[in-house]
Structure formats: structure tokens, C-alpha cells
Design a protein around this nucleic acid. Structure first.
Lengths: 188, 188
DNA sequence: AGTATAAGTGAACGAACGTTCACCTGTCAA
DNA sequence: TTGACAGGTGAACGTTCGTTCACTTATACT
């Protein structure tokens, strides 16, 4: 499935943020004729490794920057054997809904540790100014910013940490939701 | 910093996986002359919102698909005010080292719960066949696949869960490391 | 009002692109 | 040996791209 040509195209694409022209592919694949490229591209298209625009321009296949999803981990890898009938995802598409409203923060402190969010984790936050009971939010309370569970009951609104060593925060004056937690990312 | 034009370009790029031609930008920006586009592009280049190849072809600025990093969360957002002097990352670049060797799995069970990896989390695994003491690995022991801490001492090799309800696994016959845990991703 | 400066129109042009054509290998089967 | 076919070469062609030129319209400042 994945051949030499596609790897070269992928690395060209990720390095240059665009597909190569036929002339560039001549160098890339070590051909001496553009027509050789032309015929090769036809095959790649048939194999769904690349595609063409409505304008006839070459564009990367959907799966270009994507990561295969192989299954569940305790269930084991599917025979580790051939990874064919699987899905792929682009991490960006998977994690980012409204791009303009999304940003990343690094977690400090351990107030959300029981939600399995620890110091050093990166979080993706989507800006918004309201939340529902039980969601994890970034909020500004009485002038300070913090990440907590958002709680709401009988018109009362407060924040709760996920750590029994900390106490709930009942806003004296103001509680402004800045954004919702959309994802946690931990690098090893 | 971020204007109408860049948003349109970004959405065109993420939709079409390439930059628009000048003719397409005419429609996109509602111009009636290619030269209007030409002048506009010049400005976008000066502002570093897009760039040009060594071949004179338009390519997206590096920050195109990227997410801004605003700081730490307990420290609060930097004045929420203007988000200028910050970094941005592409999630793919941030998380994926060796693309061909990376895949994704969904976590089942709670054997790594004390490492704050819970059921339903997605993990990024990079294939490799050895690991160092203390790293989290996907391994095959006596025919079964599992995610655990890899332990090694005095030429002995075994796996340890991050959950005191489970016991370490001492391989009867074989212990093959399949890959290392590179990242944990949890969606909300 | 007058005049710079910026921004848009419309037509033209050379260059480079993707495509096509004709031809030249190798390789494998009949 | 012959024929068919896939794969590569080299040259040619029409299209469309990015760019340029000359001109017009809007905005702002004196």
C-alpha cells in the first residue's frame, strides 16, 4: 500500500506545504521525462494515494498527515499483521473544532488531579462564556484565573476542584467562564 | 494581526489542502481584477501571513494550522488582552516524531490509572522493540498485548501496571516491546 | 479646491504547467 | 521469433498562472 513514491510525496508536502509540480517530481523520482511522472501520477490517483482538484491540480490524499487508528490497547493490536481496514485521523481535525477560538495552555498545580489532569499536561481550550454543570472550564473568579469543574444549582454558580485537598470556590463578586476544556494532551 | 483575508485563506487551505490561485482569490475576496489580488498578496507577504516558494508559489505561513500557546493555567491567561508575543504549534508536529512508525490506540481498562491514563483515552504509540526501565510501553507478553510500565533490573525484565489492584507481569516465555507511549490524548 | 496616496479595474504578456503525441526500450508469453 | 504491453524518453502544444502596465476611483490631508 505505502510505497516509495508516496513517502517522498508526503515528505515533500510536509516540508513545502504544497504538492510538487511535475518538473519537481522529475527530480524527486529521478525521471528524465515529465511524461514518466504523468503516467506515474495516474497510477497514484487510481490507487487513491493522491487526488486531483476540480481544477486538475494535484492535492494530497486525505490520509496524508494522518495517523492510523489500530484499535484498543488491552484488546491488543489487530494481529500486528496488516493494518489495512483501519481509520486514520489528523490530530488537528480530531481535536480542534473552532480553530479561531482554540488555544493551548500548560497545566500548573494539581487541583484537577482526580480528573487525571496533572501538572505539565497541555490542554486545549475553546473560548466561550457559558458552561453547563459538571463541565471543566477555565474561569476567572474575583480576578484570578483557574481551571475547575463548573457547578450550577438553583441559580448558584461555583467552581469545584478535582482534589479533596482543595475547597470549592464560591465567587464573592464575579465568575466569568473564559473557555471550556476540549482536550488534554500529555507528552512523554 | 488576524484579518478577514487570512481567515478565508486558512479555511480555503484546510478545505482544499492547497492555496488558492489568484483567480480563485478573486472570487474568494470578491475582486474583479487579478491585480487587486496581486497587490493584496504583496501585503500579506510583507505581514508574514503567507509566503512564497523559491519558485514563486504561494504557500501558507507556518502558523497556518497551528494553535496559539498562551501560557500556564493557574497563572491565568496573560491579561486575556492581546495575544501577541506567543508561540503556536501544530499538533501534528508537536506530537508526532516518526510519522511512519506512529499509530493511535484507544485505552481499555484501568491498569494505568495511577499514571492518569484512563479508559477512553487515545494514545499515540511509536513502534520500537526496546525500552528503558520506567518507560510506558505497549508490549506482547506470552501472546497478549498490554500497556504497562517497562521494568528492567539485573537482566530481569517485567511489566508493572499503574494500579495497585493489578500485579506485575513476569513473562513466562516472551516479552516483546511493540512500541513506546509517546502521548496521551483525552477528548471532552 | 487641490493633490498625494491607497485601492481597484481591465487588458496584455511571457513563463511554466499539465497534457499529449510519437518513439524507444525492456520483459514476458505465445 | 514474434507480438503485446508496461515503463521511460523527448519534443511539442494549449491553458492558465503570476506578473506588469496604463488607467480609474476612493480616501485623506493640507
Amino acid at each position: 500500500m505505502k510505497n516509495e513514491y508516496q513517502s517522498k510525496l508526503e515528505s515533500f508536502f510536509s516540508g513545502n506545504r504544497r504538492m510538487p509540480t511535475y518538473s519537481e517530481m522529475m527530480k524527486l523520482f529521478d525521471f528524465k521525462s515529465k511524461n514518466a511522472v504523468f503516467k506515474l501520477v495516474k497510477k497514484l490517483i487510481d490507487a487513491n494515494l493522491v487526488a486531483k482538484d476540480h481544477l486538475g491540480r494535484l492535492v494530497p490524499a486525505k490520509s496524508f498527515g494522518e495517523v492510523p487508528i489500530l484499535g484498543f490497547v488491552t484488546a491488543g493490536l489487530p494481529a500486528s499483521a496488516e493494518e489495512e481496514l483501519l481509520n486514520t485521523v489528523s490530530l488537528d481535525d480530531m481535536l480542534i473544532g473552532k480553530k479561531d477560538l482554540t488555544y493551548m495552555l500548560e497545566v500548573e498545580g494539581d487541583s484537577m488531579i482526580e480528573a487525571h489532569i496533572e501538572k505539565g499536561d497541555m490542554i486545549l481550550v475553546e473560548k466561550c462564556n457559558k458552561a453547563r454543570d459538571g463541565e471543566i472550564v477555565i474561569a476567572e473568579v474575583d480576578g484570578e484565573y483557574t481551571m475547575k469543574y463548573f457547578k450550577e444549582k438553583n441559580d448558584k454558580v461555583w467552581l469545584e476542584p478535582a482534589n479533596k485537598n482543595y475547597k470549592p470556590i464560591y465567587p464573592r463578586q464575579s465568575l466569568n467562564v473564559i473557555g471550556k476544556l476540549k482536550a488534554v494532551i500529555r507528552k512523554y
